[in-house]
Design a protein around this nucleic acid. Structure first.
Lengths: 353, 353
DNA sequence: TTGTAGGCGTTATCAG
DNA sequence: CTGATAACGCCTACAA
């Protein structure tokens, strides 16, 4: 059995890691020449080029990126800040980011903020210390102060999945249109004949996913000239529990129940349905429910959840592409890029027209 | 509106980044002295120490980690390789890893292999090039060749969530006991009076989660002297679809149905239940089903899924702790650390005793 | 306790 | 086309 002391014994003796000088010596050329063939930065005669490449190949030589980055000021690593790594929304987002980054030779440094703004600010520096080339940031309440913080750094930041709560247009952003999405969700219910529509959504302090979705709901009601009922609105966490208790509260405090419920997320919707089912209210016969996100599980849930599909993977991929373009010198005017959403009808909505 | 060209304009003019020489000059000492107070590596007079610290503070100076790492051969970044970032099992794993790493001053470089062994081997090098201090590896089929590959590197690798298929004990591993876990799951059904028990699990090429779980199932049957029925066994992907079609096949090819089904994952179990429900077979009245993993969603699923709970978060945390100890010079004998699992009874198992 | 100088492994500038 | 040599920013003997 091999005993690992600090680092494991490389099988077959010590690992010899060559450097550019060794290669140069073996090839009988200067290190500048080796550097040139590696980076293809200046013309080198074919003979030498071939010779050097062969030796590099033979020795499996890889230039030390630390030394290189020290000079070039570029590490080819991109920092990612998300509130919760294990949340599938952000899992998908990171997967999308990684899909383009790994293709383009970038590696991801992933961090988790817990949605806490102080943590987010700290992580901005932690990643800066690691000399990342840029950051993809998924915040919760990206206010002016935070944006200013980002602008003050010497690396670019792009917002993903969440937009800044004020100072719009000052920072590159890739999101879905939360207002429009929840507007569409609500309108979909209205189009299906519903007039008493409740809203059980995310927290007030969450700008994009909390406030904006609520706004979309209200706008849709207004457009249809449906009077807003304050007691039909509940705001809480993006959790099953919050959906359950939000619906419970609404159920207990209203003598006239809504015929439909717009929610802030699929998980909330599931909690809502769970409560309704616990008091014998049938979905969708008695009350229709629409979710938000379109998690994989929404299809497996019973009844299958109608929802608005958000393409988190795409958002990650697009944001990553934008950041890389920025890093590679493409001129970019700060803008907000909206990734389209889509209403998905499954089994939790009844047409009562 | 600010125009971003390559990098954003830092508000308030150019960002001045100081280096250790600047600090030394301003403090009127040598750079070695500054280095000493930063790293607390040799005694420095209190006066100077204070003066230097003040200047560092005032200028918000942070030593350049690239330059430092170039010398110290340590980057304080840990590489992570998982098959699928958006899979909640690995999301939880990474969250666990991050929970201890971020506390201890390590940052995570996360990569995705797609479960492809060639990709895994490539990533081992990609991360090495990035000069990570060590790697936490969640593979799918970690064979001898792959282990040898890892042993040949100049950084330590710890296996998480999946163990090596051969050459046991040669590499540090943190997992749950797949054999025992599925054994317990099967035995739990047996204890509930079941004798006709089918198995619908993960792929054959997946050592830990495929083969080992199947083995646990078989052992439990053997122990209870229940004859193994080959047509009661289906192996496929870890997906809802695979669970569905696996159960379909089993249903169509057996005249006598099992009274219970052991599965390779919660998702598979959900697919199984979905199929059964589609042909009017009630769970758990007609057939009992047990999952594996205990995803958050298993509670929201209808009927609530009985399962075996695996603590992926803990596995990540423990593995990270072990790796960091290794990196910090603690002598560690390669061993396999088993994180305990737990049978969770919910609504998909009927006692037919 | 403090300073000097060499080196980590590259890239980049400037001659030739 | 090729080769010295100076950075990059820091750590670390070795001296003082």
């Amino acid at each position: 059995m091999i005993i690992q002391i600090g680092k494991p014994f490389p099988i077959g003796g010590e690992l010899i890691i060559m450097n550019i000088t060794d290669i140069a010596k073996e090839a009988g050329v200067s290190i500048s020449t080796v550097s040139r063939v590696i980076n293809n930065t200046k013309p080198v005669s074919e003979n030498i080029k071939k010779r050097v490449f062969d030796i590099i190949e033979k020795n499996n030589f890889k230039p030390n990126v630390l030394a290189r980055s020290l000079i070039t000021k570029k590490t080819n690593v991109i920092g990612v800040i998300v509130p919760d790594i294990s949340n599938s929304v952000f899992g998908l987002l990171i997967k999308g980011i990684n899909s383009v980054c790994s293709d383009r030779g970038y590696t991801l440094m992933v961090t988790e903020s817990g949605g806490d703004i102080n943590n987010e600010i700290k992580l901005l520096d932690v990643l800066a210390d690691k000399k990342i080339d840029g950051i993809l940031f998924a915040g919760v309440d990206v206010n002016n102060k935070l944006v200013a913080e980002m602008q003050s750094k010497d690396y670019p930041v792009i917002l993903v999945t969440q937009e800044a709560s004020d100072g719009d247009g000052i920072i590159n952003t890739v999101v879905h249109d939360n207002v429009k999405a929840e507007f569409d969700a609500t309108k979909f219910l209205i189009d299906n004949g519903h007039k008493q529509i409740a809203y059980i959504g995310g927290p007030k302090y969450d700008y994009s996913s909390g406030k904006k979705r609520l706004k979309g709901y209200k706008l849709a009601l207004a457009e249809a000239k449906i009077k807003l009922v304050e007691s039909y609105i509940e705001q809480g966490e993006f959790s099953f529990q919050a959906g359950y208790s939000g619906m419970k509260k609404l159920y207990e405090e209203n003598s006239i129940l809504p015929t439909a419920v717009v929610t802030g997320s699929d998980i909330i919707a599931m909690g809502v349905i769970q409560f309704l089912s616990s008091v014998g209210v049938n979905v969708p016969d008695d009350i229709s429910v629409i979710g938000f996100d379109d998690l994989e599980f929404s299809t497996y849930f019973k009844p299958e959840l109608s929802t608005v599909r958000i393409s988190y993977f795409d958002e990650g991929a697009i944001a990553a592409k934008q950041l890389i373009e920025l890093l590679e010198g493409v001129h970019v005017i700060p803008q907000t890029h909206y990734v389209p959403h889509k209403i998905i009808r499954r089994s939790t909505i009844k047409n009562i027209n």
